[in-house]
Structures are given as structure tokens and as C-alpha cells.
Design a protein around this nucleic acid. Structure first.
Lengths: 139, 139
DNA sequence: CATAGAATTGGAATAATTCTAAACTGGACT
DNA sequence: AGTCCAGTTTAGAATTATTCCAATTCTATG
């Protein structure tokens, strides 16, 4: 159920791109499908490595362009973890947080319903977003 | 009480450095004092700008060296916020989190006692650290 | 099928940080 | 005071992720 590796048809990918107002080009479809179906919080470089094995040519610039387009369209989120120099891309759009396994470096999504936060702020703050990063180990 | 700008004597700074096993050189004392007394979540570049006005010469490499030494000694923490390309340094060592004012870009410490988190994790995870970043606006 | 606007490309540019090798400092021992 | 040495500082080169740029290639539409 919670499988990271899904099978989504090219048609479905195209439809999602169009619905989000993104022109579904060959490169965008391929990159988006890879992220949705095969990858797990990939970096631009990991996407590039994968692309090099599966396409005649996709330039790194196109990968960055595409990722930015997808993020701007709300189809992906970018995550900037302190422990990595590279941005990783997150296909999960529902409210969620993250757990980083300090032994393996593996990043796991934690759905929003698994964390309840109670704020007792002294200041008058209007909170619009909240990022939580848990660190630790898995048994 | 919650003042960001404190007055701590050079002797006290030296003592803290020594206690943490850090050789209290002129540059380290100056930089550490600046962070503790005058700065608010500064970046290396901001420290460099300040240093340029107050010293004949402090190289940027020394600033980075010093910051790394202080972080390794547990005298500072580094924060890597998604919205900035640069690391910022945090003098507050007690458990706390952060609020980022999306209008001003200002970063505010939120003490640990103002946030209560209840975890209902499905997986068996042993949590050792938790970073929370709130975003929003101030009234 | 012509064409304009969008997408892609390779390579140069940028920016934060680290690396390197040389020069400098300051305390310990004469 | 003079020498020595480990630790520190320095300037500048190197690294790395990402963006920029100008030129080329697609693609949808008339």
C-alpha cells in the first residue's frame, strides 16, 4: 500500500502535467514519471544518472529546468536537508514530515496524522507552514 | 530578558572557549564574542563584513575555520534553512526551534517549551533529534 | 509547410564553502 | 632574549550545486 514504486501510465502522467498547466514534453514526462514511479527523494544528479542510461541525451540544465517547472506547478516539493548539499525532490504532496535515518541516510515520509503539534507561542505569530525533520535510527 | 544583544566580557568568552577545549586565539575570541553579543543568526559573510570593519585583517577562510571549530566544540549550532543558500549560526544551545517571518525573512528562536509534539509513529523509530521550522507572519 | 513561442542544450557563470601550501604566532624551554 | 614547534591564519585555488545565457531545435497552430 505504501509502496514507493508505483506504476503510473504515461497517459496519466501527461494528464497530470496538462492539468497543472505544464506542457507535457518528452523530457518532462520521462523525468516526472521517473520521480513518481521509480525514484525515492532523488537529487538532480541522481535523475541525471538515471536519464543518461535511458535517453540519448538529456542535459543537466533541462533536468533543473524541469524540476523547477514541476515544483512551481505544485507537482513536486523540494526539500533542503541540512545534511545534504543537494536539494531532494519529494513526490508526496499531502501534509507530511520527514524522518532521516542517521545510520543509513535514508529519508522516510511521515504522514501528517502521525505527528500532532501543540503550539503555546508567547508571540503573536500566524503560522502558515511547518516543517518537521526527525532524526534517529530504525529498529 | 530575552534580549538578543548581550554584554559578555572577553574574559568570559575566553573561559568558555577554554572550557570547550578551544584555543582562545584573538580571532576566535572576536568572532565568538560578535556572535554571542552583537549578531543575530549571522551568516559567514555577515561575520566577514563585520570583521572587515573591526579588524585590520581576518580572512574568510579563518571565519569558516572558526565557525566549524565552534560548532564542533558545541559552542554554536549551524542552521541550514531552505530559503537561504548560506548556513546561519545559532548561539542558542538549549532545545529550541525556529520561526521564519516570510515577509521580513527574520528568524526567531522558539523555545522548546512553546511547542509540544506528540508522535504516533507507525514504524519503529528511535528519535534522537527533532528540527521544527515554522513559517508565517507576525502581527 | 511556415513560423513563432516554448523547450532544450552545452558551456560559461555564480556563489558558498573547503582545500592547500606557505607564512605567521605565541608559549615552552633553554 | 633566542629557538623551536605545534597550532593558527592566510590568500588564493579548487570544488560543487545550481543558474544563466545564447544558440539551436521542437511543436502546435494557422
Amino acid at each position: 500500500m505504501n509502496s514507493k514504486f508505483q506504476n503510473i501510465s504515461v497517459e496519466e502522467i501527461e494528464r497530470r502535467l496538462k492539468d497543472a498547466g505544464v506542457n507535457p514534453t518528452t523530457q518532462r514526462i520521462a523525468i516526472f514519471k521517473y520521480i513518481l514511479c521509480d525514484a525515492d527523494h532523488p537529487t538532480a544528479d541522481q535523475i541525471k544518472s538515471w536519464a543518461d542510461k535511458n535517453f540519448p541525451k538529456v542535459s543537466l540544465a533541462t533536468i533543473y529546468n524541469t524540476l523547477n517547472v514541476l515544483v512551481d506547478a505544485g507537482l513536486l516539493r523540494e526539500l533542503n536537508l541540512p545534511e545534504s548539499d543537494s536539494v531532494v525532490y519529494d513526490k508526496t504532496l499531502s501534509e507530511h514530515h520527514h524522518f532521516l535515518d542517521q545510520q543509513t541516510g535514508h529519508l522516510i515520509d511521515i504522514e501528517g496524522d502521525q505527528i500532532r503539534v501543540e503550539l503555546k507561542l508567547k508571540r503573536q505569530l500566524k503560522i502558515s507552514e511547518m516543517d518537521i525533520l526527525l532524526r534517529g535510527t530504525q529498529n
